[in-house]
């Protein structure tokens, strides 16, 4: 009992909120590129927010349900359909056995999360169900989905409640059309030339076609340092903007390497990683500075919003 893959789509992989505690062993964190969407999807179903879901990228998969199940679709809008009819996102959907979930045009964003009631029945590797594609670890057999895979459910939804009048509250999820990405200065910010520092904030960048779960290359003004000394490798994280010597910045994403030796000009704040993760190639962005305390307040606020959503939904399921 589970979902069977008819077409795998461009890149569909199982992700939770990441594999923590092993970066000191060189192990990437991985996890959902848009962790906020995954959490909301789980909360809508009454799941623990960190439950693993399916991350579908740009060209979504075609999946058939082998049992009745309760699901939620969140994140980017890839025109989800069930049996050829458009279905709403951001709310629980009761899906019958034999139903076919497919996707169409990427209307907004590029990653949709499919959460299922109770989650998928997959073994955890190093305390996480996330797929780390490069090392072939975790998720479904350490890889992206392929045709004929059967991803098992952990539980079936058996409650009589099958019509749902609730959805995610507005205000938690950001506007994906936004061009603003807020950043903190990186440890090597001051080693960049005056012109590069001003270009970084005054000019626009756009997402290049070289963008995957490891990193997003940006097109725009090239950035240079005052002196080109080699740096000793140190930690980099999800959102680190590093600049190799040729000058083209890379925003590191969920599957980023644990350490790097390129200068770190900036760090995208955690609250704006959803927008960064949902961007399609060509999307224009402007970097805007923000204070550390303010960036942390945004995370405290988000945490509260998610807790409120969880409380409200727990009451509804009864």
């Amino acid at each position: 009992m589970g979902i069977r893959v008819i077409k795998p789509g461009l890149l569909s992989s199982i992700q939770d909120l990441g594999r923590y505690g092993y970066q000191k062993s060189g192990m990437a964190v991985s996890g959902a590129m848009d962790g906020l969407a995954l959490q909301i999807g789980n909360l809508l179903l009454g799941n623990a927010k960190e439950t693993a879901g399916l991350e579908c990228t740009l060209l979504g998969p075609v999946l058939v349900f082998e049992k009745d199940q309760l699901i939620a679709l969140t994140g980017g809008d890839l025109s989800a359909q069930i049996d050829g009819l458009a279905v709403p996102m951001w709310k629980p959907l009761y899906v019958h056995r034999g139903a076919v979930l497919s996707f169409g045009k990427a209307v907004k964003g590029c990653r949709t999360y499919l959460c299922v009631y109770g989650g998928f029945n997959l073994p955890e590797v190093l305390s996480s169900a996330s797929t780390y594609l490069k090392a072939g670890i975790g998720g479904w057999k350490g890889r992206a989905l392929k045709r004929d895979d059967l991803i098992p459910f952990k539980r079936l939804y058996t409650k009589s409640l099958k019509k749902f009048n609730w959805s995610s509250v507005p205000g938690i999820y950001p506007d994906l059309q936004s061009n603003r990405i807020r950043v903190l200065e990186g440890p090597e910010f001051k080693s960049f030339t005056r012109k590069s520092r001003s270009d970084f904030f005054e000019q626009s960048f756009s997402l290049s076609t070289q963008a995957d779960r490891m990193g997003h290359y940006l097109d725009g003004p090239l950035l240079y340092r005052d002196q080109n000394g080699e740096l000793l490798s140190a930690a980099v994280s999800f959102g680190t903007v590093q600049v190799p010597p040729q000058g083209k910045p890379i925003v590191l994403m969920a599957d980023h390497q644990t350490t790097g030796g390129y200068p770190r000009i900036a760090q995208v704040i955690t609250a704006d990683l959803t927008c960064m993760a949902q961007m399609q190639a060509g999307h224009q962005i402007r970097f805007e500075g923000i204070g550390l305390a303010q960036a942390q307040e945004l995370l405290v606020k988000r945490k509260q919003q998610l807790e409120e959503l969880q409380k409200a939904i727990t009451l509804k399921y009864g």
Binding site: Y22, K24, S25, G26, M27, A28, K134, A135, I137, S233, Q257, T258, T259
Partner: peptide
């Protein structure tokens, strides 16, 4: 000195 780059890679 450190482990990084890929899982388990020692510098």
């Amino acid at each position: 000195y450190m482990i990084g780059f890929v899982p388990g890679f020692p510098y």
